[in-house]
Simulated scan of single mutants.
Amino acid sequence: MIKTLPVLLSLASTMAFAQMTPEGLWRNVDDKTGEAKAEIRIAATPSGALNGRIEKALTESSEPNCTLCTGDRKDKPKLGMEIIRGAKKNASEALWEGGKILDPENGKEYTLRMTLQEEGKKLQIRGYIGPFYRTQVWTRVE
């Protein structure tokens, strides 16, 4: 029993840390319809920035490829597409910004700000173009 205590403590601290970072699997909800659309996996890059990919589609898209995208994502499949790039942790413990987020439905890329909520169970995603922004709240997939 004493030998397993350090392992259990390590596991508990890892689980607590995982909840205080956007890293992990998230279910996004459309800000217009309230419908769950996809699951996005957010992971750290070797430089420490966060990127996110569409791992699973929860609704059917009329267009499986991103025909409205530009650059390296033009006409690529939405499933598996990297939609978050380069988010970095701010001095605040629960804020990541400076990256970009892509809406593959309209091909627009927004300046990104992510804020953890409810002890890491929810993630507020805000995309900006100038003074205008869109906000979604994603739910962590356990």
Rank of each mutant, 00 (worst) to 15 (best):
Met1Ser: 13
Ile2Val: 13
Lys3Cys: 09
Thr4Asp: 06
Thr4Trp: 03
Leu8Val: 09
Leu8Asp: 01
Leu9Asp: 02
Ser13Lys: 09
Ser13Pro: 00
Ser13Ile: 13
Thr14His: 09
Met15His: 09
Met15Lys: 12
Met15Phe: 11
Met15Pro: 00
Ala16Pro: 01
Ala16Trp: 08
Phe17Gln: 13
Phe17Ala: 15
Gln19Trp: 05
Gln19Ser: 13
Met20Tyr: 04
Pro22Leu: 04
Glu23Ala: 14
Glu23Tyr: 02
Leu25Met: 13
Trp26Leu: 10
Arg27Cys: 11
Asn28Gln: 09
Asp30Asn: 15
Asp30Arg: 07
Asp30Phe: 08
Asp31Thr: 03
Asp31Ile: 05
Lys32Arg: 14
Gly34Gln: 07
Glu35Tyr: 03
Ala36Pro: 10
Lys37Pro: 01
Glu39Cys: 03
Arg41Gly: 07
Ala43Val: 10
Ala44Trp: 00
Ser47Phe: 00
Gly48Pro: 03
Ala49Thr: 12
Ala49Phe: 00
Asn51Lys: 09
Gly52Val: 08
Arg53Trp: 12
Ile54Gly: 06
Ile54Glu: 04
Glu55Trp: 04
Ala57Gln: 12
Ala57Tyr: 00
Ala57Trp: 04
Leu58Ile: 07
Thr59Trp: 07
Ser62Tyr: 02
Glu63Val: 12
Glu63His: 12
Asn65Pro: 00
Asn65Ser: 14
Thr67Asn: 10
Thr67Cys: 02
Leu68Arg: 13
Leu68Pro: 01
Leu68Ile: 02
Cys69Met: 04
Cys69Phe: 01
Thr70Tyr: 01
Thr70Trp: 00
Gly71Cys: 06
Asp72Cys: 04
Asp72Pro: 09
Arg73Asp: 14
Lys74Tyr: 05
Asp75Gly: 01
Lys76Thr: 13
Lys76Glu: 12
Pro77Glu: 07
Lys78Asp: 05
Leu79Lys: 09
Gly80Pro: 01
Met81Tyr: 02
Ile83Gln: 02
Arg85Thr: 15
Arg85Val: 14
Lys88Ser: 13
Asn90Tyr: 06
Ala91Cys: 01
Ser92Glu: 15
Ser92Val: 10
Glu93Asp: 15
Ala94Trp: 02
Leu95Arg: 12
Trp96Pro: 08
Trp96Thr: 11
Glu97His: 11
Lys100Phe: 03
Asp103Val: 05
Asp103Thr: 06
Glu105Leu: 13
Glu105Asp: 15
Glu105Val: 07
Asn106Asp: 15
Gly107His: 07
Lys108Ile: 10
Glu109Asn: 09
Glu109Gln: 12
Leu112Asn: 06
Leu112Gln: 08
Met114Glu: 01
Met114Gln: 05
Thr115Ile: 08
Thr115Met: 08
Thr115Lys: 13
Thr115Ala: 12
Thr115Arg: 12
Leu116Tyr: 03
Glu118Gly: 01
Leu123His: 07
Gln124Pro: 01
Gln124Thr: 12
Arg126Leu: 04
Tyr128His: 14
Gly130Met: 10
Phe132His: 03
Tyr133Cys: 10
Thr135Glu: 10
Gln136Arg: 10
Gln136Pro: 05
Val137Pro: 00
Val137Glu: 09
Val137Thr: 15
Thr139Ile: 11
Thr139Gln: 14
Thr139Phe: 02
Arg140Val: 05
Arg140Thr: 06
Glu142Met: 12
